[in-house]
Each structure stands twice: as structure tokens, then as C-alpha cells.
């Protein structure tokens, strides 16, 4: 069976949607994913080669059941239905937010960037009140938005823009190693003056990475910082020797006491 991927198929969906809902697939990256194909009882969604191929839709046979919309892990499949006429279209989107969206209520239809397209009436809600299910919301919008709608928002306001401020002058110092509280400036001083060859030596002396967290959080940044500050030497920096215990353990435990 033939089918078209991405925006190629959208024209067809547009055309066929005068007869009822059709799936609009907005998934064109090669993602290893195929539940839409599995979910489609009509066989209208086909991945041409392997599971990374973008799904191709055969709009002719699509019956608009919406199973693919509900299961798509990327929430990237929608339904477009122009059968109601009078310049309106119904768009069905997957929905997993907890805003109170009521059947018959008004909501915003938004595009892929979250821009407001239109305010529309919710004409269908399926899967509501069933945790774990992806809800399908159908919103009625002017036909010209039918292919653009990617979301429905009950929260009808926009985020305020962040304020622009004057650049801060000096970089404040901070603890590079959270546990031992080794300052960033101190660490860099040690790196640049200490002429350490290896990470273990740097750690031994700076104590960055020797704290209670066992270096979980600073060892990898310590490595990057070390390489960044000593770029002239192209070398393996030797990794830390790992010794038990890799998790802190009470001395009494280690000594064999129970409890």
C-alpha cells in the first residue's frame, strides 16, 4: 500500500477530511518507533523500512478512529475533520494535561509553537477521568487552521517574557565540589599551577571529589575542567581508581553487625 509521509500527506488528509476525520501525522524524524502502525486496524499507517522510517499515511483508507492518536508516544498524530462544513473544521488532539477542559467549553487552539490560533468549542472529549489513558479532545476551529492545530490549552494566557537585564560584571565564585566546598577559583589555581598529570593526583590534592557524595557529581565536571584548563596536552587523563564501598555504608554494617 502506498502512503505519504509528513507534510506530503497533509494535502491528501485535507482533501479526504471533507468525508470525515483523517489522521494527520506530524512525525518526520527517523525515530525508532512503530506503535501507530501496530495500532491501525485499517493498515493505513505503514513504516516503509524498519522502525525508524517515518510513518506514511494512506488517507484513502484511514477511518479516523483515533487509535493512533491515543497511542503515539510522541503525541504527534492528530485528526482533521472538515465534514461539518460551514467553514469550520474539527481537530482532535491527544491531551495529557490536567486543566479542566469541559465538553462544550471554550479553549485555545494553538499551533506547534504554542501560538494562539483560535478560540474554539470542545465538541468531544474521550478518555477523561481514566488515568493512564491519553485523552482525545476535539476542538472546532475555522477551517484555515485545520492543518495547523497541534494543541488545545485550557490555560488561556501566555507566559510573560523574561526581563532583559544588564550583563553581570564579574563571575561570582562558587563551590565546585559541593561536599568539600572547594571553590572554583581555587580549583583552577590548583589545576593551572599544580601541573598534575592525572585526575587522581588532582583529586588527591584539591580534594574535589573526595566528599560524602563520593564524587558522584563533580568527578565528571572535574574531568572536563581539567581537560579544558590543560588543553595543550593531548592525553588520557587516567580515571579514578574505584574502591569499595561505592555507596556509603555504616561502619557497624561493614563490621558485620546486624540491623
Amino acid at each position: 500500500m502506498q502512503g505519504k509521509t509528513g507534510s506530503e500527506s497533509w494535502q491528501e488528509v485535507w482533501d479526504k477530511s471533507v468525508n470525515g476525520p483523517r489522521a494527520l501525522i506530524d512525525c518526520w524524524q527517523e525515530i525508532p518507533c512503530d506503535p501507530c502502525q501496530e495500532a491501525c486496524a485499517q493498515g493505513s499507517i505503514v513504516l516503509s523500512s524498519g522502525i525508524c522510517a517515518p510513518p506514511a499515511l494512506h488517507a484513502e483508507t484511514c477511518n479516523g478512529c483515533g487509535k493512533c492518536v491515543a497511542i503515539c508516544p510522541g503525541m504527534a498524530i492528530f485528526l482533521v475533520d472538515r465534514s461539518i462544513g460551514s467553514g469550520l473544521a474539527r481537530v482532535t488532539v491527544p491531551y495529557e494535561m490536567r486543566d479542566e477542559i469541559r465538553l462544550g467549553g471554550e479553549a485555545w487552539a494553538v499551533d506547534g509553537e504554542g501560538n494562539y490560533l483560535a478560540e474554539g468549542r470542545i465538541t468531544r472529549v474521550s478518555g477523561a477521568g481514566r488515568p493512564g489513558r491519553t485523552m482525545l479532545l476535539t476542538i472546532e476551529v475555522p477551517e484555515e487552521w485545520a492543518l495547523k492545530v497541534r494543541g488545545v490549552r485550557g490555560r488561556r494566557k501566555l507566559l510573560e517574557e523574561p526581563e532583559e537585564v544588564e550583563a553581570i560584571e564579574a563571575v561570582e565564585d562558587f563551590a565546585f565540589c559541593r561536599c568539600e566546598e572547594i571553590d572554583y577559583s581555587r580549583l583552577r589555581e590548583i589545576i593551572t599551577q599544580g601541573e598534575f598529570r592525572s585526575l587522581p593526583a588532582l583529586r588527591r590534592f584539591s580534594r574535589a571529589g573526595l566528599g560524602y557524595c563520593q564524587g558522584r557529581f563533580c568527578q565528571s565536571i572535574l574531568r572536563s575542567q581539567f581537560l579544558a584548563d590543560c588543553p595543550e596536552e593531548d592525553r588520557e587523563v587516567e580515571s579514578f581508581r574505584v574502591r569499595a564501598p561505592v555507596r556509603p555504608v555504616k561502619l557497624s554494617r561493614l563490621g558485620g553487625e546486624d540491623g
Partner: peptide, 15 residues
């Protein structure tokens, strides 16, 4: 990340 994941976030109005 994947565009589809970005899409889910952006359509909620998250820049």
C-alpha cells in the same frame, strides 16, 4: 531531543 518531544512542550506555550 526529538522534535516530537519539543513539540509537546512548545505547544503548551513553553519557549
Amino acid at each position: 531531543g526529538y522534535q516530537v518531544h519539543a513539540g509537546r512542550v512548545r505547544r503548551e506555550g513553553i519557549p
